[in-house]
Design a binder for these strands. Structure first.
Lengths: 166, 166
DNA sequence: TAAAACTTTCAGTAAGTATTGAAAGTTTTG
DNA sequence: CAAAACTTTCAATACTTACTGAAAGTTTTA
């Protein structure tokens, strides 16, 4: 298999994987493209590689910057903006986790907690609040576990990209 | 807040949360409805509660059974099928994890592994395969962590529902 | 065994989500 | 400061995904 070919497959794979987990497919593809690019890419580069519109490229790049997975750079003598991805996959995982927690888990937990304020007393209400408690505990544990995992700062993630490009 | 009201909110909440993670919203709502139901429900019950069609109710119930989150039951003298949800949230988490791993993580890992067969030698190819390796290691670790978490069999999940309904 | 009771399927359609592209906005240059 | 170079926005549209409902299939009953 050729490198170019493998890279294209990776872009597809990452896009599909992302969309299975509620991440915009194109955004994941842009991410994959930048992850596998040694050089910074311009909006036009990305438009060309993925055959998407300028608007689409722009939106997804900005979103990736909100997630802190992509940075803007520029080169003297060139007016265009260029983009680079964070290459340390451990960092990448941390940032995705952080963002999804902030966007999805925290609001869920807040809402679940409010649901426990049922007026009624008795077995039916207790069953309900009991189940909500169970979910809260479960999510709490998962959260704790991910925290622990992500705090293993001294990790084995000094792969080829990292060694050569940072 | 009234119990009935809280329950409806929970159904919405669970539906939205599911869809943020790539799970069909209606399927998550059906799941939530059954999770918060002390009695087994019929297809008609579910159609009414969620205002969905028979086809939709049927499809989602069957899919929930594939995920092992819902069981079929029946009552003597009634020809209809009734459905109950697994109420042990720890079990629920285990089964969802198992299923998503089987459907999404395993195929991803297989495909990633294939991508490492790049013909070219040299720094570019090494960078690429290095990054693929990093992803594999990362996913592997997460997998391991979830395994560990899920194996804590002696867990604290003996909430109200579980105590009373099992 | 035929009618009734219930479940499943799936083509057509509706709803939701993502993309385009052109216009408006911004920054840089000479 | 006006034209050029580039970025951003967003209404219209395309695409994807999910749902409906009626017909076909299955099981039960009498």
């Amino acid at each position: 298999m050729e490198l170019k070919e493998a890279r294209q497959e990776f872009v597809q794979l990452w896009g599909n994987f992302g969309s299975q987990w509620g991440i915009n497919k194109t955004m994941a593809q842009v991410h994959a493209l930048l992850l596998t690019s040694e050089d910074a890419l311009s909006t036009d580069d990305i438009m060309e590689h993925l055959a998407i519109s300028r608007g689409g490229a722009n939106m997804n790049l900005r979103e990736l910057m909100v997630w802190n997975l992509v940075y803007k750079t520029s080169f003297p003598g060139d007016r265009k903006e260029f983009f680079v991805a964070e290459k340390d996959m451990w960092e990448v995982a941390k940032r995705i986790t952080r963002e999804r927690k902030r966007r999805e888990i925290e609001p869920l937990m807040l809402h679940l907690n409010r649901l426990k304020n049922v007026e009624e007393k008795g077995v039916h209400a207790d069953n309900f609040t009991g189940m909500v408690n169970d979910i809260e505990r479960l999510v709490g544990r998962m959260d704790k576990a991910s925290e622990t995992l992500m705090k293993m700062e001294e990790n084995a993630f000094f792969g080829a990209f990292l060694r050569l490009l940072k």
